[in-house]
Design a protein around this nucleic acid. Structure first.
Length: 264
DNA sequence: AATATTGTTCAGCA
DNA sequence: GTGCTGAACAATAT
């Protein structure tokens, strides 16, 4: 679930819940979630601090504490944040817990433990080491830059869209959505795409991610015409008279319309 | 009971 | 070096 729009909503949630509150205690409930730092170090370095501001890069949420102290969170497949007061309102699978001095708690919940949390001094260094590509909403890249960026890649368009070292933030669900709305079959080789098709993809990325954030990344609020609400085999296409098909592409479960997303 | 699942990473191979 | 495939990771739902 947590792709770029979801993480942006997490960021807004984090802001309204946790900014400028004194962190009274930190509990690492599952050390597997931590990367590159020991639970002891992590807890020690955060205790008594405050989250000052946040930003997002791709699927990463970054919270700044003091200068040169940044909490970086990735949500894996099942991660989310939960802010609550009473213990009985805590969700299952909270792996890291922040206690604020106002008596409230912020939980980092991650059922499948694929998410990772770390504390770094330099975010750029972290992203460089991780080979994380550009954020498609933050960096205002031109169509020409986009062409250069993905033109150096080979393989099918879906895999390239999901390649985090090129563009950061697009996962399985949104790559399907982008191609669905661009009328392109997900397994189309990227070098077979015409200029106008690339342009469609370029525009769809921004349009779809922005719209999804506006609708709080909540499927119930997203337009009925989007593929995201019809990710099932053999249902009618919400855009044309075609049929939704399923296939594994780029190692992921992909859905597409057999009529308006014809394989070239 | 077998299978599938929104993400990332790595091994093995072409 | 690049790309592809499959596996591993872990927990749950169908």
């Amino acid at each position: 679930m947590p792709e770029l729009p979801d993480v942006e909503i997490f960021r807004q949630y984090f802001d309204s819940a946790s900014l400028n509150k004194s962190i009274k205690d930190v509990k690492v409930l599952d050390k597997k979630i931590l990367s590159g730092i020991s639970p002891k170090d992590f807890e020690q370095k955060l205790k008594g601090e405050k989250f000052k501001s946040t930003y997002r890069h791709g699927k990463y949420l970054i919270a700044e504490l003091k200068k040169n102290k940044l909490l970086i969170m990735h949500f894996g497949m099942t991660g989310f944040l939960t802010y609550f007061k009473r213990e009985e309102d805590a969700s299952k699978h909270i792996r890291i817990l922040f206690d604020f001095s106002n008596g409230y708690h912020l939980g980092y919940d991650c059922q499948r433990k694929f998410g990772r949390v770390t504390l770094v001094e330099n975010a750029n260094e972290f992203f460089k080491k991780k080979k994380v590509g550009i954020d498609p909403l933050k960096e205002n890249i031109s169509f020409n830059d986009f062409k250069k960026l993905i033109g150096s890649k080979k393989g099918n368009i879906k895999s390239v869209l999901m390649d985090q070292s090129v563009i950061s933030g697009i996962g399985n669900i949104y790559s399907d959505e982008i191609l669905f709305q661009s009328d392109i079959h997900p397994s189309t080789e990227i070098n077979k795409l015409k200029e106008e098709e690339l342009k469609k993809v370029f525009n769809a990325i921004k349009k779809i991610l922005t719209k999804a954030i506006e609708k709080e990344a909540d499927p119930e609020q997203l337009p009925e015409s989007w593929l995201i609400l019809h990710r099932k085999k053999e249902v009618d296409c919400p855009k044309c008279s075609g049929m939704i098909k399923h296939k594994t592409i780029g190692g992921r479960s992909s859905y597409f319309c057999n009529k308006h997303q014809k394989k070239k």
